[in-house]
Each structure stands twice: as structure tokens, then as C-alpha cells.
Design a protein around this nucleic acid. Structure first.
Length: 591
RNA sequence: GGGGCCGUAGCUCAAUUGGUUAGAGUACCGGACUGUCGAUCCGGGGGUUGCGGGUUCAAGUCCCGUCGGCCUCGCCA
């Protein structure tokens, strides 16, 4: 090594030692007779002093050092005495340099990795090599490494094999849009990058590899979000000869190991479970944030005969009126704030947001205060207050609409209010299984049933008969793991007998020929002795994001892409020359 | 595809709500200084206000379009 120590490890015990450090200039202070350099590497910062009286021959060179220059300095570890810097772990010592080698000068950087105020993200992504020098990115990627390492160790102890599956696969048009790769040797034909290793891992089960996992890179050509990148990493798992409980206990163990390994805290197992139905009723979401309460309440019966036309008409039309109680928030939201919330729920299809402040009148009785309170008799007001357990100072919100809209709007509003009202400890990691998802949901536009999870998802045994009679009521053997309001894992027990598989294809309106054409290779494999099997995939990026306490996954990915799926560092995607296109039998039709 | 926020010096921001030569901090350059650690002090350079149109006596500011970044609905089996 070119160095004998790192910039993070020297302490008082090292005083008197001759050491050599390498690193980047994090800051410089030139006092003519002495030049101070804050030298930074992965491990920390150490102050190096270049003193005129000790090494006059390198003084001139030291005075020219600027931020982000790379150097090697050799010198003696000195006690700082009175001049300790409590901000640095190495603050009790410094190096009095006798030798200096400048490996490379840096152009003036567009921003300083050590600075407090971050530049805009566009610049950070363009100069990602500078951004990655920041301590926060180092920490995030270290946690990411820890999650991967713990995962591999855990599955190893459980007898799993890590098996790689192809990146160049066959396009199956279901689900997300594929990223396609043209074939040179098969003119007009394309590979697809995997949306997930789903079909391959099921084939591995048929092949007898009954405990498989993989840290799998996946690709989906869909619009991005804060927690969605076009390429991302799944902890992909599949097991044979198992039922749902085996998956839960296996993943419970992984989750506990991750939290223990990253946070150092233990997690009570088994993780709690909530049915999809209960999650939607109580929280308005299939990925509820369970760090706080503020559950939804149905007041449909209570307000069915009130004088407020909106409520009355919605109930009469088969809709629902649901609400929730923001405890103590009456004075925290002005009329203008609430207008903002009304616009917010509008994004989820709600046509309005009714609100009431709970107040105590002169007599000490509770009543509702709102522009629409006059439409509610005293009996109605008391009933509403009773249902939502209202107390003076509470703020009640209601949405009246189609059932799905009340869930979507109130679920989103609850999530937002929980954050704004700081109803939880932001460091908490709260996990729960959501189970008993519906197998299919009705697609209004296409006038058919769509698979909620995917077409190979098995069904709760007692619901099999319902496939033909009442498909919307069929519960799937699928499950999600939600963490702090994020879908952090999703999986299912798969269908392994062809009768059930055919029944599901029939339900989805997929003719046998079409199923054969699309994933016949999986169906054929299942005909050669398929064990009962099931699995799950965890979103590794999201888990790391949650462990870091960030609100987007770009900050836990070394080289992320922008919302338009561009890499601002490399310039991908880019045009290619016509020769490459010709080799691939591709013609550019945009010109 | 839709909605919203943003774009001014290398960077972070300001600019009287349409009005004189677009400012500050920081970074950068030069100088002073032997104990700083957000060093300090003196001096200096640095602008196509993302881009293109339009309105106006006058546009960083208003309007239209466009590019880019972020958030989001749809989408993501």
C-alpha cells in the first residue's frame, strides 16, 4: 500500500509514530508559516500540518493545495494539546508532515462533497463521482453492502443456493413493459431483460432446487417514482414443498436478521398479519403505515339521513362516507391548509373533502364547527363525534364517494397527515404481512378480470369453487410485506397443478393456445412433476432506503437514473451509429 | 399521457411584485498572516437570468412554447 494508515484511525495512542496517509483535500487553511490540510478518505478526516520550520522544501507545494487534490503525506503523529478539534474522531492528533507527494490536482469542483448545503440533484447526478465522496453516500452504500451480506449469510445457514438466472430472456408481454435487446444472429428477434426471475425460479423448483435465492437485478420500462428505478435489485426467493407459513417464517427470520444486523435491535416474531380486507377498511391502503393509528371510520349509516346533500346522495347511490380523526389538529390546519388537502385528495379522485373542528360550546358540550355543520342536526353531530371518538381540538375529515375512491383518498391523506403531524418515530421500522389479497380485480375499461398478483398465483383452498361462481371473492395465496407504508416484499404460493392453472387462465380470459404461446415453457415444465412451491421477492433498494431513513432510492444506488430514465453521468441512453443498427437489423424510424 | 413545484455568477440564494449598471454568501484568482479547524484581513475577476418566441416605452419578473430536474395520478401482472 502507498499508505501505512487511513485518515480515520489515528488516535492519541499513535502519538510519536511515523505514518503515511493518502487522501483528498477536504479543506485547507494557509497561515503562511503553517498550512493545515484536512485530509479525507473513506475512513475519516485527519489534519495534516505543513510547518515552515520543519519542512521548508515542501511548504511552497503545500500552499498550492486546493480542495479535492489527491496526495500522500508522511510525517509524525503529534499531540494537539490544547488545540483539539472535538468534531473529528482524530481531533486529538495531527500529522506534522515531512514529505508530500501530490498525485493529482483537481479542477475546481462544482460543489464540495464536504459542504452542508447540497446542490440540486441534477448536478449531483452529473458529477456523481463527487457526490459519492459524501459521507452520507458512503454510509448508504455501506448499509447496502451490509444488507446484501446479511442476506447471503442468512440464506446460506438456511440451506439455500444462490443461483443466477439469465439477463437475456424471453419477452412475456404481461405486466410491465420490457426492456428489449435486439438479436444480431436472429434478425427481427429480441431478448427481454428480466422484470423479475419469476419463471426461471419456478422452473428451478421443478428441477428440484427446493431452496433458491438470488440478489437479482430487474428491469421495468415504466414511469419512475421516488421509490422506483428502471433497474433495481430484488432479494428473490423461492421454496418447494412449502405452504404460506413456511415462507412467512423464513422471511420473518431474514427481516429479524437484517434489523438486528443493521440497527442492532431485535424484532418480535412472528411479524403481525393483516388481511387485505382489514387493511383497506382500517387504513384505506394495501400498504398501510402502521406506525400510527388514525384509523378510518365508516359513518355511512350515521349520515344516510342527514341534510347534507353530498353525503346523502352518495349513500343513496351505493357509495360510502368514511372519515378519520386528526387528534388535536384543529388549530394546526388553517382553511388555506385544508384547501391544499382538498386538492391533494382530488388527485385520488375525491370530489371534495369535508372537515369539522370539534369544539366545546358554552355549556361544555361538544359540537362540530365547519362551513357545512349547519346541515347536521345536533343528533347527527353527536353521532359523528361519538363514532370518531372526537374531543375538543380534534379535526375530522370525511370523503364521500365510490368505495374505492374513499379508500384511495383517505389512505393517502392518512399517510400525509401522519407525516405532517409527526405521529411516529421516523427511525422506527414497522413490518407487517398483508395477506388474503383478492385473486383478481375487475378491469372496468377492458371488461374482464385481471390477475392481482400474477397468473400463476394459487388460491386459498376453500375458495377454489368460487373461481367459477364469484371470482371477485376468491382469496389468493399471495402476500405483501409492508414496512412504514412501503411495499417492501411481495410473493405468493404458485399453482402447481394444471387443472387449477387452466381454471385461472379461463377466468382471465386467456385461451389455452395463447397461454401456451406466451409461457408454454413454464407450463410444459410444470407437467413434468412440479412440487408445491412458492416464494417472494424483497425490494433491496427500498429496504436500504428505509434503513437509511431516506425518502427516495436514488440515494442508496451508486449510479441511479433520473425520472426520464437517463444517466446524467454517462449520458445513457444515447444514439448509436448506423453500423451498429445495421448489424442488429434495426432501422431508426424517428428521423 | 395528465397535474404540480423548480431553473438567476462554479455553487446556495436575493432582486421593491414590470422600472437605473442583476446583488449577497461561498467557491475561484492575487496579496498579508506560524495554530487554524466554516480561519481571518485586504484586493480582484466572474452573468446569453435554461432555451425560443410574444406583450410592453421597459421583462429575471407577465403570456405562449420548448428543454431539463423533482413530486405525483395513470402505469408498475
Amino acid at each position: 500500500m502507498l499508505r501505512t494508515k487511513t485518515c480515520g484511525e489515528l488516535r492519541s495512542e499513535n502519538i510519536g509514530e511515523e505514518v503515511t496517509l493518502c487522501g483528498w483535500v477536504d479543506g485547507y487553511r494557509d497561515h503562511n508559516g503553517v498550512v493545515f490540510i484536512d485530509l479525507r478518505d473513506r475512513y475519516g478526516i485527519t489534519q495534516v500540518a505543513f510547518k515552515l520550520d520543519l519542512a521548508p522544501e515542501i511548504q511552497e507545494q503545500a500552499r498550492k493545495l486546493r480542495n479535492e487534490d489527491v496526495l500522500r503525506a508522511t510525517g509524525t503523529v503529534i499531540d494537539r494539546g490544547e488545540n483539539v478539534n472535538p468534531k473529528l474522531d482524530t481531533g486529538k492528533i495531527e500529522i506534522h508532515a515531512s514529505e508530500l507527494e501530490v498525485y493529482s490536482k483537481s479542477k475546481t469542483p462544482p460543489f464540495e462533497p464536504g459542504t452542508q448545503e447540497l446542490p440540486n440533484e441534477e448536478l449531483r447526478l452529473q458529477y456523481r463521482f463527487l457526490d459519492l465522496r459524501r459521507q452520507e453516500l458512503h454510509d448508504a452504500l455501506a448499509i447496502r453492502h451490509r444488507v446484501s451480506k446479511i442476506t447471503r449469510d442468512y440464506f446460506d445457514t438456511q440451506g439455500f443456493l444462490e443461483i443466477e438466472t439469465p439477463m437475456l430472456g424471453r419477452s412475456t408481454p404481461e405486466g410491465a413493459r420490457d426492456y428489449l435487446v435486439p438479436s444480431r444472429v436472429h434478425p427481427g428477434a429480441f431478448y427481454a431483460l428480466p422484470q423479475s426471475p419469476q419463471i426461471y425460479k419456478q422452473i428451478l423448483m421443478v428441477a428440484g432446487y427446493d431452496r433458491y435465492y438470488q440478489l437479482a437485478r430487474c428491469f421495468r420500462d415504466e414511469d419512475l417514482r421516488a421509490d422506483r428505478q428502471p433497474e433495481f435489485t430484488q432479494i428473490d426467493v423461492e421454496m418447494a414443498f412449502v405452504d404460506r407459513e413456511d415462507i412467512f417464517s423464513t422471511i420473518d427470520g431474514l427481516v429479524a436478521a437484517l434489523i438486528e444486523g443493521v440497527r442492532g435491535t431485535s424484532t418480535p416474531l412472528p411479524l403481525p398479519r393483516i388481511s387485505y380486507h382489514d387493511a383497506m377498511e382500517r387504513f384505506g391502503s394495501d400498504k398501510p403505515d402502521l406506525r400510527f393509528g388514525m384509523e378510518l371510520v365508516d359513518v355511512g349509516e350515521t349520515v344516510a339521513d342527514c341534510e347534507f346533500g353530498v353525503f346523502k346522495n352518495v349513500i343513496a347511490g351505493g357509495g360510502r362516507v368514511r372519515g378519520m380523526n386528526a387528534k388535536g389538529a384543529a388549530e394546526k390546519y388553517s382553511r388555506k391548509n385544508i384547501d391544499g388537502l382538498t386538492a391533494f385528495v382530488g388527485e385520488y379522485g375525491a370530489k371534495g373533502l369535508a372537515f369539522f373542528r370539534v369544539k366545546a360550546n358554552e355549556g361544555g358540550d361538544l359540537c362540530l364547527d365547519s362551513p357545512i355543520a349547519k346541515f347536521f342536526s345536533d343528533e347527527h353531530q353527536q353521532a359523528i363525534i361519538g363514532k370518531l371518538k372526537g374531543e375538543a381540538g380534534d379535526l375530522l375529515f370525511f370523503v364521500a364517494d365510490k368505495p374505492a375512491v374513499t379508500s384511495a383518498a383517505l389512505g393517502a391523506l392518512r399517510f400525509r397527515l401522519g407525516r405532517e403531524l409527526e405521529l411516529y418515530d421516523p427511525k422506527e421500522i414497522n413490518c407487517a404481512w398483508i395477506i388474503d389479497f383478492p385473486l383478481v380485480t375487475w378491469n372496468e375499461d377492458e371488461n374482464r378480470w385481471d390477475a392481482e398478483h400474477h397468473p400463476f398465483c394459487s388460491v386459498v383452498a376453500e375458495d377454489v369453487e368460487l373461481i367459477k361462481t364469484d371470482p371477485g371473492k376468491v382469496r389468493a395465496l399471495s402476500y405483501d410485506l409492508v414496512v412504514n407504508g412501503n411495499e417492501a416484499a411481495s410473493g405468493s404460493i404458485r399453482i402447481h397443478d394444471s387443472d387449477t392453472q387452466q381454471a385461472v387462465f379461463d377466468l382471465l380470459g386467456m385461451p389455452a393456445e395463447e397461454a401456451e404461446a406466451r409461457f408454454g415453457f413454464l407450463l410444459e415444465a410444470l407437467r413434468y412433476g412440479a412440487p408445491p412451491h412458492g416464494g417472494i421477492a424483497l425490494g433491496l433498494d427500498r429496504w436500504v432506503m428505509l434503513f437509511c431513513g431516506y425518502d427516495n432510492i436514488r440515494d442508496v444506488i451508486a449510479f441511479p437514473k433520473t425520472q426520464k430514465a437517463a444517466d446524467l453521468l454517462s449520458g445513457a441512453p444515447s444514439e448509436v451509429d448506423s453500423r451498429q443498427l445495421r448489424d442488429l437489423h434495426i432501422r431508426n424510424v424517428t428521423k
